[in-house]
Write a protein that binds this DNA or RNA. Structure first.
Lengths: 266, 266
DNA sequence: ACTCGGCATTAACCTGCGTCAATATGCCAG
DNA sequence: CTGGCATATTGACGCAGGTTAATGCCGAGT
């Protein structure tokens, strides 16, 4: 059984993971509302300076104090919490364009940890800059608010996963959510993407054990729904997978922001 | 076994559920930052007009469209999602002072439902008003942002509950979280509070089954940690309960907002 | 007084998933 | 080339918690 990277198996379009969008937060917020030149310029400025960090580095450590958030410009991260007995729960996966450190850093001491899953590029944003944005670019602040609705909605679906879906359904749901999110980030083909997660980590996302994830992956393969090989996820039967998972992508796409009032409405 | 309301069993201070704080959102945000008169006045204005709704009324129905959020002035609500097979997962419990409709209503069509658990008083806030706030009261917008960090952190703990804690631990953790939140809302005594939830609903919060919640409640009683009778929750051994649950209340209290820059910091 | 419907409680039984352990595989450091 | 480490894979076994159903209590409606 070949173990090669298997680039174009069936003509699948697998975008490179290093697809470098220079200003991912700008692109993200532009999907919610049109943006003036000033606003765009400000957002571009937030992406500097950038820091490159290696794989598996702790970026935010629960229990420490931070005065910045981070834009994740490139790469994947996970936000998680570790319990006293060593069990770990991943709260969400951060993809390029995501703002990290929310809500972890807004407490006396970070309540969650964040680690890089791949090599990443991040751009820190001080709280001072963040509040400057509320003062000088209220529409951007509102867009950020809007964007965070999307993250909360993802947390909500995640809760439904852990609380009420079977292991099989959870895995299917995760695969589909990542397909949609990565496509939006330009990091997935129509039905496939690179997923730099170990099975152990997937288990920690889904509140399951490593061995059981392995069983479920095999199951998906035997049913002809999905194959995962060398971190390449390929969806073979989107319809069946979606109905099995109870997946509806509405929660990933907030409605466009309403027109912004420039005058007082009090 | 008496079934009376049992008001002052052991001199416990059980605040009445109808403790009427006139402007709960104002009080909430004031805990994050000092407020000018203008700001306070604006926030008070958001609490009008108010609507009273009976127990068990659907306030937001998933799949419908809404153009407002709501301040929950009095009473309890639950935000939840129902799966096609009828299973239900409660995403969070709304207490007086909470802003509801976030994130549910920011999508084309509400992604979650919200129902009243008691008689409630709510004050709708149109998106127009909300955006007016971003324009005219940026500090309030920032405070709202700050406050939503707290909600996200609660979702995070909830995820840890469902993913990595046993049924017993989950129940203990929920009881403690509610104790702290209700105390902050002036609705709990030192070690007790009224909790108008059926066991079935607690099960749906914790991703468990009704009968199993019942077993765990009995277990807590037999261990002398907590009694729940006629919706009155009494914590008898706070220390043991906390350590059992792995409860740390840090995630419920965001740090005070940093000083707000009145000048450009770009 | 009688019934009905909601809720708490409990028991009997079953299963999905965790735990533990063994084996395999590729990768990196020396 | 070699040993060590991380990860994937699989099996055996047990248990936490789900499911179903029966019982009982209470409050509301008639």
């Amino acid at each position: 059984m070949t173990r090669l990277a298997m680039p174009q198996k069936t003509g699948l379009c697998v975008s490179s993971t290093t697809s470098t969008r220079a200003f991912p937060l700008l692109e993200r917020l532009q999907t919610y509302m049109p943006m003036t030149d000033d606003e765009a310029e400000f957002l571009r400025g937030l992406h500097e300076p950038r820091r490159k960090l290696p794989r598996r580095r702790e970026i935010i450590v629960a229990g420490h104090r931070y005065d910045t958030l981070f834009i994740l410009c490139e790469g994947f991260v996970s936000r998680y919490k570790v319990l006293p007995d060593g069990k770990r729960q991943v709260l969400n996966l951060g993809l390029p364009g995501d703002l990290m450190g929310f809500p972890s850093c807004l407490f006396q001491v970070a309540v969650n940890s964040v680690s890089s899953l791949t090599e990443v590029v991040v751009a820190p944003i001080s709280f001072a800059k963040l509040f400057g944005m509320f003062t000088h670019f209220p529409r951007l602040a509102a867009a950020l608010f809007w964007s965070s609705a999307c993250e909360s909605a993802m947390d909500g679906e995640h809760l439904v996963d852990l609380g009420r879906r079977s292991a099989y359904e959870r895995l299917a749901h995760l695969i589909l959510e990542l397909l949609v999110r990565l496509r939006a980030a330009g990091l997935a083909g129509d039905l496939s993407y690179m997923l730099p997660l170990t099975q152990e980590l997937i288990a920690d996302v889904l509140g399951l054990s490593g061995p059981h994830i392995n069983r479920m992956i095999r199951c998906l393969r035997e049913e002809g729904l999905v194959t995962i090989e060398d971190h390449l996820v390929v969806v073979h039967d989107l319809a069946s997978l979606s109905s099995l998972a109870g997946f509806e992508e509405g929660y990933l796409i907030p409605r466009p922001m309403p027109a912004f009032p420039s005058d007082a409405i009090v």
